[in-house]
Amino acid sequence: MPRLHSLELVPDDAGQEAVRAQWRALSEAGLPSQLDHRGSTNVPHVSVVEAPALPEAALDVAHARLGSLLPVTALVDGVLLLGNGRVTLARPVQLADDVVRRVLAVRVQVPERRHLGWVPHVTLARRLERADVPRALEVLDELDAGRHRGLELRLTGLRRWDPDAGQVHEL
């Protein structure tokens, strides 16, 4: 499988720290966590689109439609399990309809995108054994105990990950 280029919405420092706290809690419980990914470009984010290549038209639309809208507030609440066998543990991200429309305007510019639909989320762990899911949910429940509603994330940045160059470019 080719390495995938991506466009990502990135939270402000407070939002990144809130997500990293969840990564740390999973890691401290001996579970897989995005904290295990030691790359310098690994930051909490919401992927807009992933593909073997990103056409210039997609970058132009992203800059015009999403970049001009930032910052936006998102609600992170609940839990998602994605995949088969070992799963990806993630938090679903709720966004205003206008943001979703703008993301879809970007996605249609990328015909070879990895996923046909869009499930906005923040990844907490990859390759989690199904047998470890109950323990991971307990860890997250402890973190959520004091909240009446989900975590608000302020998405302030739009970036492009270029795996071929090993670089992140802010848009």
Rank of each mutant, 00 (worst) to 15 (best):
A14P: 01
A14V: 11
A14I: 04
G15C: 04
G15A: 04
G15K: 07
Q16A: 13
Q16K: 07
Q16F: 04
E17M: 06
E17I: 02
E17V: 12
A18K: 08
A18I: 01
A18Q: 08
A18H: 12
V19Y: 05
V19D: 10
V19Q: 04
R20P: 00
R20T: 10
R20L: 13
A21R: 13
Q22L: 14
W23C: 03
W23G: 07
W23D: 10
W23E: 05
R24I: 05
R24P: 00
R24L: 10
A25E: 00
A25D: 00
A25F: 00
L26A: 10
L26I: 10
L26Q: 06
S27Q: 11
S27C: 06
S27T: 04
S27V: 00
E28F: 01
E28R: 14
A29H: 01
A29D: 03
A29Y: 04
G30R: 04
G30K: 03
G30V: 04
L31N: 11
L31C: 10
L31G: 03
L31W: 06
P32T: 13
S33N: 05
S33R: 02
S33P: 05
Q34R: 11
Q34F: 08
Q34G: 08
Q34Y: 08
L35A: 15
L35E: 13
L35P: 01
D36W: 05
D36S: 14
D36P: 00
D36Q: 08
D36T: 03
R38Y: 09
R38K: 12
R38S: 14
R38V: 15
G39P: 01
G39N: 08
S40Q: 09
S40V: 13
S40H: 12
S40E: 12
S40A: 14
N42F: 09
N42C: 11
N42G: 06
N42E: 12
N42S: 15
V43N: 04
V43L: 13
P44S: 12
P44F: 14
H45C: 12
H45F: 03
H45R: 03
H45T: 04
V46Q: 02
V46W: 07
S47C: 07
S47Y: 07
S47I: 08
S47G: 13
S47T: 15
V48L: 06
V48W: 07
V49W: 00
V49S: 07
E50S: 12
E50G: 06
A51F: 06
A51S: 14
P52L: 13
P52Q: 13
A53K: 06
A53P: 01
A53G: 09
A53F: 09
L54E: 06
L54T: 11
L54W: 02
L54M: 10
L54I: 11
P55R: 11
P55Q: 10
E56M: 03
E56G: 06
E56Q: 15
E56H: 11
E56N: 05
A57V: 09
A57F: 02
A57C: 03
A57R: 11
A57G: 05
